[in-house]
Design a protein around this nucleic acid. Structure first.
Lengths: 165, 165
DNA sequence: TATTGTTATACTCTATAACTATA
DNA sequence: TATAGTTATAGAGTATAACAATA
């Protein structure tokens, strides 16, 4: 085992900070667009996108994966989408514990209405300054990081309980 | 002018989704650690980090840049940090409109206490699966994107006001 | 017993608009 | 007039814990 290193070197700091700030800005722009053009948040857009991609139906647990970090958070978001008429919820026949979420025609219509503008924002803000090579590299790197993080157990982020603040 | 393209190609979608999900996961882990180990949010950590890096003093406007997207949001966060004894605020001598924010010894101590764990999370979650080449590429790419987005005017994300929802 | 999902609740955070004060 | 910052307020989102129902 090597010594526990003291900090991050300049290249690591640069990559970390640039990554976080750029994605923060991108998310902000994306949120603005979705709110203005469709009255939905990015989380809600992702849920609609998943349903649209999944042929219209998913269970709550399947829907949550990667989008929301708590059960109740998803229930809350699904409640909003249902109230807006964009999805419906019903008990699954296979497993009566499960709730089957279905995207409505209105939900699909809204998703399709909003998509072009969403793509435009992603193009202008993220893709515009990237070469094909960059795009490839970025996709490769971030896919690897994402998969790594999905597997990595949180490994008790707080090593040991300290004093209260 | 070329035709307005219909959507994103698979490589673009992969890069975009992987980027957003990975950073979402990373932010979540980072938040968890900072909350558990220091009782602060990532935004608050960033503000402390900026002050620590800037030799202890910054004006509100300087402090806000890139971290927070509204004036009142910063006032709110600064209020929390001040109440916790981590910063102080005072009127600037140069420009009496400006508020000069100063990090306290307690603020600096907290920042230093939390930093190693923060670095550990970044290493384990983000850096671990990356080669030196990857790191270099990622830093280069995201720096370019960030700079691009800083300059890019929002360009009216909502092209035109549509019907209400 | 474990899993799926909901509810109640409390909290954190963000943003808009109106306002004060200085440049 | 423009800029720096605060305040009031309202809304959106999140998480924890307790709960009910099914597997």
């Amino acid at each position: 085992m090597t010594d526990s290193p003291p900090g991050l070197d300049p290249a690591q700091i640069e990559a970390y900070f640039a990554l976080m700030e750029a994605v923060g800005l991108l998310e902000h722009q994306v949120e603005q667009h979705l709110r203005a053009d469709g009255g939905i948040s990015y989380v809600q857009f992702q849920l609609l996108a998943r349903l649209a991609a999944a042929d219209g139906q998913l269970t709550m647990t399947q829907l949550a994966d990667g989008v929301v970090y708590s059960r109740s958070g998803l229930t809350y978001q699904a409640g909003l989408l249902e109230k807006a008429g964009l999805i419906t919820r019903g008990t699954s026949a296979d497993d009566e514990r499960a709730t089957l979420v279905t995207i409505t025609d209105a939900g699909l219509a809204l998703f399709r209405k909003v998509l072009p503008g969403h793509v435009q924002v992603v193009r202008r803000q993220l893709l515009a300054p990237l070469s094909d090579q960059d795009l490839h590299d970025l996709g490769d790197i971030m896919t690897r990081v994402r998969d790594h993080m999905r597997n990595e157990p949180p490994r008790s982020a707080a090593p040991r309980k300290r004093r209260q603040r």
